[in-house]
């Protein structure tokens, strides 16, 4: 089955069994997402004509293919065994992919806002032609509305279904993806309202609707980029949907501090997992001489931590 092909042969016990099932469900959801998005992109391509509004919606739908693809790549890669080239394993690929997905969301919001502002400033009156179907001339606007209506339905359903696995798996890419699906349906509805507006002779309706929607997408995008930065900068583990520290990370830190009094505890995030370090590990002994001895006199300064990990499956 396709899900097994994506996950590969699990080389590394990664998740507890009950979450392994959730991961398979998430993979299945993302495969469906890719399938529907591809059909939507094709339908939209054939109806967009010269309409700028439809072109924007189309680019957006194409862009929202990125998070599901990144998710599938990440969940496959993170199962690989650590090796001399990647001694900590590949968990952090998730962090990197999340950063890319967050950038895609922000870029989508930015692009939408830019298009809307340019259309309004230049007062570009969107011109939508017609096609002949069965001998009748049908205004392309009606077909666009039908295509947009189709483009709205799958993301709404899939986006909602992804929320639970995203939280249970602590998967930020999946979470961003469900936000992106929400953005898709918002822009779809805005696009329909815009084309209805054009039908009634309000040339600005389309751009105005897109402009309003773009703000919420931009906000989601920037929020996610901030969380991704924190993760890439070894910040404390954040919640899925805000820059607040995750309660589990707080609990780990407090608990370790209680058990090892007088030591500093640092918790950081690698992909969906957390790594805790108790300092000083070997820090008491880690003086100038030892550093130079370990790393060579030229690179001794680069070694700033040598600690014992409280480690289970993470290797």
């Amino acid at each position: 089955m396709l899900v097994d092909r994506v996950l590969g042969t699990a080389q590394r016990a990664n998740l507890p069994p009950e979450l392994e099932e959730e991961a398979r469900r998430a993979v299945r959801l993302e495969l469906w997402t890719i399938f529907f998005l591809v059909t939507i992109v094709i339908v939209m391509f054939f109806t967009m004509g010269s309409s700028q509004a439809m072109k924007t919606a189309w680019i957006e739908d194409a862009l929202s293919l990125l998070p599901p693809i990144l998710f599938l790549v990440a969940i496959r890669l993170e199962r690989r065994q650590p090796n001399p080239a990647f001694p900590f394993g590949y968990h952090r690929f998730g962090s990197l992919a999340f950063f890319a997905a967050a950038c895609a969301l922000a870029a989508m919001g930015g692009y939408l806002l830019y298009e809307a502002v340019v259309t309004l400033i230049r007062q570009e009156h969107p011109t939508i032609g017609s096609v002949q179907i069965l001998g009748r001339d049908i205004w392309l606007g009606w077909l666009m509305m039908a295509a947009l209506a189709y483009s709205v339905v799958p993301p709404v359903i899939l986006g909602r279904m992804k929320r639970r696995p995203a939280h249970r798996l602590a998967d930020k890419i999946l979470h961003t993806d469900s936000q992106m699906n929400a953005a898709d349906w918002q822009t779809g509805v805005a696009g329909m309202a815009g084309i209805a507006g054009i039908a009634f002779g309000f040339w600005w309706a389309d751009a105005a609707a897109a402009g309003i929607i773009s703000f919420s997408i931009l906000k989601d995008g920037f929020d996610n980029v901030r969380i991704a930065f924190a993760e890439l900068l070894d910040g404390a583990p954040r919640k899925l949907d805000s820059s607040d520290t995750h309660p589990a990370a707080e609990k780990i830190r407090n608990e370790l501090q209680r058990r090892y009094p007088g030591r500093e505890v640092r918790v950081r995030e690698t992909g969906r997992h957390m790594r805790a370090v108790i300092v000083p590990g070997l820090a008491a002994e880690l003086n100038r001489e030892l550093r130079d001895e370990l790393a060579g006199s030229k690179d001794g300064w680069r070694l700033i931590e040598a600690s014992r990990a409280l480690d289970d499956a993470a290797g």
């Binding site: 009156h125 969107p126 011109t127 939508i128 205004w139 054009i198």
Partner: peptide, 10 residues
């Protein structure tokens, strides 16, 4: 035709 005159274009 003049841009945006969708009814006339039809």
């Amino acid at each position: 035709i003049r841009k945006g005159e969708n009814g006339f274009l039809l």
